[in-house]
């Protein structure tokens, strides 16, 4: 079926600069993807329950060398990608190809996200072994250059606390009132 031209008011994330000359893209349902002819950009709407936001980022990022990419959430259960090709070569067929590639990349990214969660332990173990095996132990020069002032790390077991800090806190409930109680601002 040839693309049909319609003029509809699209709820755009960029209402001021957006035109309203919108056509469907051959092969894609109108409520999924459409072409803003005047602004030469494709608008792709996604069901947020199907694509985790990580997949949206992963897929969007793949296109930023070829397109300008804008994301939005036009409704709570909807995600929107707006792709503007940097090059105008190829016209509408090129935009259609980009939308097709985006759709494939979204599926791939969503599935990859799921796989990464399922296989996290194996992926991390192999990655650590590969990198650690290649790097080897640090030399004294490496240690000298190491930045130990990095941001604080979580310490749920209190390993990094001094003996005094650790046991002073534990002793607090039994301590005499006022002795170990934290200082508070007066109400």
């Amino acid at each position: 079926m040839p693309p049909r031209s319609v003029r509809v008011g699209v709820q755009s994330p960029f209402p001021i600069c957006y035109s309203v000359a919108v056509t469907t893209i051959e092969g894609f349902p109108e409520d999924l993807a459409r072409l803003d002819v005047d602004a030469r950009r494709a608008i792709v709407d996604l069901d947020a329950s199907l694509y985790p936001v990580e997949a949206l980022y992963g897929a969007a990022y793949v296109f930023i060398d070829r397109c300008y990419v804008l994301l939005d959430r036009p409704a709570p259960q909807k995600l929107r990608l707006v792709l503007t090709p940097k090059s105008l070569d190829g016209g509408e067929p090129a935009v259609r190809a980009l939308v097709g590639e985006l759709a494939n990349e979204l599926v791939s990214a969503a599935y990859r996200h799921q796989i990464a969660q399922e296989n996290r332990a194996r992926i991390e173990a192999v990655t650590m072994q590969a990198i650690a095996g290649a790097m080897g132990p640090p030399t004294l020069d490496d240690l000298e250059d190491f930045d130990f002032t990095d941001e604080a790390f979580e310490d749920p077991l209190g390993i990094a606390l001094s003996w005094e800090e650790k046991y002073a806190k534990k002793a607090a409930p039994d301590a005499a009132p006022g002795e170990d109680a934290p200082e508070e601002e007066p109400a």
């Binding site: 990859r112 796989i115 192999v126 990198i131």
Partner: peptide, 14 residues
């Protein structure tokens, strides 16, 4: 290099 190791791990690839 780290990114390439992760990306080329077949257990992370659809």
């Amino acid at each position: 290099v780290r990114a390439m190791v992760i990306a080329s791990n077949l257990d992370s690839q659809p």
